[in-house]
Design a protein around this nucleic acid. Structure first.
Lengths: 97, 97
DNA sequence: CCAGAACATCGACGCTTGTCAATACATAGG
DNA sequence: CCTATGTATTGACAAGCGTCGATGTTCTGG
C-alpha cells in the first residue's frame, strides 16, 4: 500500500496559491492544459497573453517553482506541461485547511 | 432545477487565490474552520497568529472581500465564520482552468 | 566558425502588500 | 454622560511583485 500523503504546511500551500494569484498565470495554465499534446512552447504563449517574452518566461518560472509546471528543453525550444496531479493536490489544499 | 453555476472569470479566481496566498490568512481560515461553533471573534485570533490586532483585522477584511468569510457583529464583538461552500468553490476553480 | 532564432536572466521602474503605531469608532456598564 | 473595551481605519514604511528593455546563453543551419 502507498504511504499516506503528508499534507503540506500552510506556508507551502500559500506559495502555491501565490503562484495562482495572477490572471496571466492562470491563462498560461489554462492554455497549456488545453493543448492537444499537453505541452506548449513559449513562442505559442507570448501572443495570446499580449505580454513580452521575458515576462512570460518569468511567469512560467514562478509556476515551475511552485511545482505546477514541468519544463523540458528540446533543441532551441522549451516545452512546458502540467505536472500530473499538481492541480488536484492544490485543490485538495484548499479543502483540508 | 437549479441554474447551472457560471464559472468565475480568471480575474475573479485570481482574486480569491490572492486572498489565500498568505500563510497568516490560511491560519485564520484554519482556526475559524476548526472552531466548535463555526465562528470566532477577533480577540481569539490575535494571539495564535502573533500579530497585532489591526493586522488581523486587515487580513480578515481581505478574506471577507474575497467572499471566503462572513462577518457578524454582536455587541462589541465581531464574529467571523466561513461562507458555506466558498472553499469548495475555490477548490473547483483550480480544477476547471 | 558565424549568423540567427528561442529562451533565460538582469536591472530598473512603478505599484501593491504586510506590518505596525496611532487614532477613530462603536457599544456595554456604571 | 463617561469610561473602558473590542474593532476598524488611517498613515507610514520596507519588502515584494509585474512589467519592460537590454543583454546573455544555447542551440540550429549553413
Amino acid at each position: 500500500m502507498p504511504a499516506l500523503e503528508e499534507s503540506p504546511s500552510l506556508d507551502a500551500r500559500a506559495q502555491v496559491f501565490k503562484a495562482l494569484a495572477d490572471p496571466n498565470r492562470l491563462r498560461l495554465l489554462s492554455i497549456i492544459k488545453a493543448a492537444a499534446d499537453g505541452e506548449t512552447c513559449v513562442c505559442d504563449l507570448t501572443e495570446p497573453l499580449g505580454l513580452g517574452q521575458p515576462t512570460v518566461s518569468h511567469h512560467l518560472k514562478v509556476l515551475v517553482d511552485a511545482g505546477l509546471l514541468r519544463r523540458e528543453k528540446r533543441g532551441t525550444w522549451a516545452y512546458y506541461s502540467l505536472v500530473p496531479g499538481a492541480l488536484e493536490s492544490a485543490a485538495e489544499s484548499v479543502l483540508t485547511l
